[in-house]
């Protein structure tokens, strides 16, 4: 298993954390995304603000959308972001 996990953030999640990317020790295959966010939120006010409202967060593991209760497994990259807003303006 990878010993490091790359976290990438987008939109207001990145703004609140103050960085678009960071590397953390891999929390282990059984650790869920939510559990990792809980740990990170304890570490800084920015993370706590970004991860406060889980209903407004979406995630992708190695570039595939997954629910927040998904175990991280052997993924190398975890992305955290708000619901997407592409397409036309409307």
């Amino acid at each position: 298993m990878a010993d490091r996990l790359t976290l990438v953030y987008f939109a207001w999640v990145r703004d609140r954390i103050g960085a678009g990317e960071e590397r953390v020790a891999h929390p282990g295959a059984a650790c869920t995304i939510s559990a990792l966010l809980d740990q990170l939120a304890e570490g800084s006010a920015g993370h706590a603000a970004a991860f406060a409202d889980r209903a407004r967060l979406r995630a992708a593991l190695d570039q595939d959308y997954v629910p927040l209760d998904t175990p991280i497994g052997t993924a190398r990259e975890l992305a955290i972001f708000p619901p997407v807003t592409g397409g036309d303006t409307q």
Binding site: F81, P82, T85, G86, G87
Partner: peptide
């Protein structure tokens, strides 16, 4: 489907440079 599946996020930018992320 592009609107809900493609990982894009829009930020509205005002004349003074301030901006707000668009909510889904």
């Amino acid at each position: 489907w592009l609107k809900v599946a493609a990982p894009f996020w829009k930020r509205e930018v005002h004349a003074d440079g301030s901006g707000d992320w668009v909510e889904a």
